[in-house]
């Protein structure tokens, strides 16, 4: 029992790391624009395809797998960031001062567009991601873990750590936080608001792009609808942690991943996992309306 528990915790850690990478994109965009970017899950899906095509190309050129892995990560992160910035410029920017619902509806529309455009051009057949990482199984007593699993956890944590540093310590990060508090004041203080917003989209999506490659290495089936479920879960993670809060998103992601891996152990079937996850979400929101780490804003009268 203990062993199963530990094993599942390891799986939870792996899944949580990927969720966290995606949840970061939701939370960063929300932090800066107060916009729930419902297209983010589909941006993640796109990044998996980028990763898939890049990996195939690099491998067919005869690159060693570790080199191909690094190159694939780079390409996927870069292209995903580009797509996201393009979406921001074309679809969201014109709506920055429109009623907020228009922007949310637009985000939903963009998500549908990405899904169906992929479906229409690449077809519904799932693609299998080629193996880029050496898959060795280590046994630690009765516990087994694969090298892929360990790498995913390590790479994700390193990425999150770097991102946290960027937001907390660099000029760009400071500008992001300034824009998130007050766009007008930030722009008066000389912060190039448009540029900072684009950078936020770029970073958030690049991280999701890394998440996409890692995810498809662990669960190597890529299809146009994969972004829907994972996107929602990452989104719940961001909200549970307190949307807009980078560290909260990471916390939420791990909580949710544990919910997902432990649900089948407690309840009769894994089909209850949505139910459990959303119930957790509902309870968190009722008890702490702005999430576990979200700041509570007082009402001004």
């Amino acid at each position: 029992m203990i062993i199963l528990l530990l094993q599942q915790m390891l799986n939870g850690l792996q899944l949580g790391s990927v969720y966290a990478l995606i949840a970061l994109g939701y939370t960063m965009v929300y932090g800066i624009l107060r916009l729930i970017n419902f297209a983010h899950g589909d941006i993640f899906m796109i990044s998996c395809y980028f990763g898939f095509f890049a990996a195939c190309a690099f491998l067919s050129k005869g690159l060693p797998t570790w080199l191909a892995f690094i190159a694939t990560m780079m390409v996927s992160m870069l292209l995903t960031a580009l797509v996201a910035v393009l979406i921001e410029r074309v679809a969201y920017k014109p709506l920055r001062y429109a009623p907020k619902v228009s922007a949310v509806i637009t985000a939903l529309g963009i998500g549908l567009f990405l899904e169906n455009f992929t479906l229409a051009t690449l077809g519904p057949t799932p693609r299998g991601m080629p193996a880029l990482l050496p898959n060795v199984n280590y046994r630690l007593g009765p516990l087994s873990m694969s090298s892929v699993q360990i790498l995913i956890i390590i790479i994700s944590i390193v990425l999150m750590f770097l991102l946290d540093r960027v937001v907390q310590k660099t000029m760009t990060g400071m500008a992001m936080r300034a824009v998130s508090y007050d766009k007008t004041t930030a722009s008066v203080m000389g912060v190039p608001v448009d540029k900072i917003i684009s950078i936020t989209f770029a970073i958030g999506s690049a991280v999701a792009g890394a998440g996409g490659v890692l995810y498809s290495l662990a669960y190597p089936i890529i299809n146009p609808y994969m972004g829907v479920r994972i996107g929602w879960w990452a989104f719940i993670a961001a909200v549970i942690g307190g949307i807009g809060n980078v560290r909260g998103a990471m916390l939420g992601a791990y909580i949710l991943a544990f919910v997902e891996v432990f649900t089948p152990m407690v309840l009769p079937s894994s089909t209850y996992r949505d139910f459990v996850a959303f119930t957790v979400l509902l309870i968190v929101l009722v008890v702490r309306p702005t999430g576990l780490m979200g700041r509570v804003t007082a009402q001004k009268v």
């Binding site: 679809a91 709506l95 429109a98 637009t106 567009f113």
Partner: peptide, 18 residues
Amino acid sequence: WRWVVGPIMLVVLMICRP
């Protein structure tokens, strides 16, 4: 392609007439 064209029309509508 219906579901590609539909969302585009929606986005255009939101931008032009929110």
